[in-house]
Amino acid sequence: MTDTPAETDVAIIGAGPAGLFAAFQCAMLRLRCVLLDVLPETGGQCAALYPEKPIYDIPACPAVEGAQLIARLEEQIAPFAVPRLLGHKVESLSGQRGQFVLGTDKGASLKAKAVIIAAGAGAFGPNRPPLDGLEAFEASGAVQYYVRRKAEFENRRIVIAGGGDSALDWALALKDKAEHVYLVHRRDRFRGAPESLRQLDEAVAAGLIEKVVPYQLHGLRGQDGRLEGVEVSDLNGDVRTLEADVLLPFFGLATDLGPVARWGMDTTRATIPVTPSTCETSLPGVFAIGDVATYPGKLKLILQGFSEAAMAAHALYPIINPDQALHFEYSTTKGVPAG
């Protein structure tokens, strides 16, 4: 890692998968770039929320855990020694196309000719269930919203609440480690990939996962932060207690664009509309990629963020080199630029 320069060609806000690949694409075009992220390490949600969760839709990787994917992306940009400013929240963006100035919450300043926003879901936090005494169980780790190490759940009784991909994926991932897995949802219909639903049916039939439907969370039983049971209620208000050591509620993330929303570009529902062919926002010279970007037909997939990173890097090239034509070359032809 090199020292962070005072100015660069491209400032990339967000060091998750899309941001890391944007750094690679810029470097392949011989554009200088700096990675900025509010988190103290690269990886974004992959590193912070699901480092051990398998990802199945990365091309050429039948299955790769979040932390492994980040490690491979870091390996890919290692030859370029891309500077990064981590643990800094970008608070301000001023100037214009070709002459931007970014300021962080820690007083750092960076000049850039173009900006790529790869901020994922923006500032994110879990949607917390409205249960009495929740804070004490959160503090003890009896209620958790992210799974960072699967080994922590060995031989434990786990209640997983939710009906989406996260609830399904973690129920399947922990079924062979936990003593018992309950999957609680308000209806007997889950939102997930067909293959995940098939695996869920198999696990239920084998007694590895117990579906608790149609139920929703009602209360927590225990004392001094030690969880003894999770109360759930059905549509008639009848309450059942599930003996449990851990509750994992997966009700999605509450997202907020934070300071980005005040930078003068169009936004909608915590996302930034972009031109699909270039990923440029309504603010000339500022591009958005990954989950934070939106356009008709957008799929919130990591692989789409990778594609957007390449498009944005090529689209902003004329800003950095206005008098130089960009001749497209395949990486198999030009290799990795030296120096």
Results as ranks from 00 to 15, higher is better:
residue 134 L to R: 04
residue 128 R to Y: 04
residue 47 A to D: 00
residue 108 A to C: 10
residue 91 E to G: 01
residue 60 A to K: 10
residue 121 A to E: 01
residue 138 E to I: 10
residue 96 Q to R: 15
residue 49 L to F: 12
residue 51 P to N: 05
residue 92 S to Y: 13
residue 105 D to Y: 07
residue 50 Y to A: 06
residue 143 V to M: 04
residue 117 I to D: 01
residue 121 A to M: 07
residue 102 L to P: 00
residue 56 Y to K: 10
residue 125 G to F: 06
residue 136 A to H: 06
residue 37 D to V: 14
residue 42 T to A: 13
residue 86 L to W: 12
residue 78 A to P: 02
residue 143 V to C: 05
residue 143 V to W: 02
residue 83 P to C: 12
residue 45 Q to I: 12
residue 94 S to I: 00
residue 44 G to H: 04
residue 70 I to R: 02
residue 120 G to Q: 11
residue 104 T to G: 05
residue 118 A to Y: 07
residue 130 P to M: 03
residue 50 Y to T: 08
residue 97 R to E: 14
residue 35 L to Y: 09
residue 88 H to R: 13
residue 95 G to N: 04
residue 39 L to A: 14
residue 100 F to S: 02
residue 105 D to S: 13
residue 75 E to H: 14
residue 90 V to F: 03
residue 116 I to S: 02
residue 118 A to R: 05
residue 66 G to A: 06
residue 83 P to Q: 12
residue 91 E to F: 00
residue 126 P to I: 14
residue 36 L to W: 03
residue 63 A to R: 15
residue 74 E to N: 01
residue 128 R to A: 01
residue 96 Q to C: 13
residue 116 I to W: 04
residue 121 A to H: 06
residue 102 L to G: 01
residue 141 G to M: 09
residue 109 S to H: 10
residue 36 L to I: 14
residue 34 V to N: 02
residue 65 E to I: 02
residue 135 E to L: 11
residue 77 I to C: 00
residue 61 C to V: 05
residue 121 A to F: 05
residue 68 Q to N: 12
residue 31 L to I: 10
residue 67 A to W: 08
residue 58 I to E: 04
residue 40 P to G: 13
residue 87 G to T: 14
residue 40 P to T: 15
residue 137 F to R: 04
residue 58 I to V: 15
residue 34 V to C: 06
residue 92 S to K: 15
residue 71 A to Q: 14
residue 45 Q to V: 14
residue 142 A to Q: 02
residue 60 A to T: 12
residue 119 A to H: 08
residue 90 V to R: 01
residue 118 A to C: 07
residue 74 E to Y: 00
residue 115 V to R: 03
residue 111 K to D: 02
residue 38 V to C: 07
residue 87 G to Q: 11
residue 128 R to N: 01
residue 133 G to Q: 08
residue 88 H to S: 14
residue 73 L to N: 08
residue 101 V to M: 06
residue 62 P to F: 08
residue 120 G to P: 11
residue 59 P to M: 11
residue 102 L to Q: 02
residue 64 V to W: 08
residue 136 A to M: 10
residue 50 Y to E: 05
residue 83 P to K: 11
residue 64 V to E: 06
residue 138 E to A: 04
residue 85 L to Q: 11
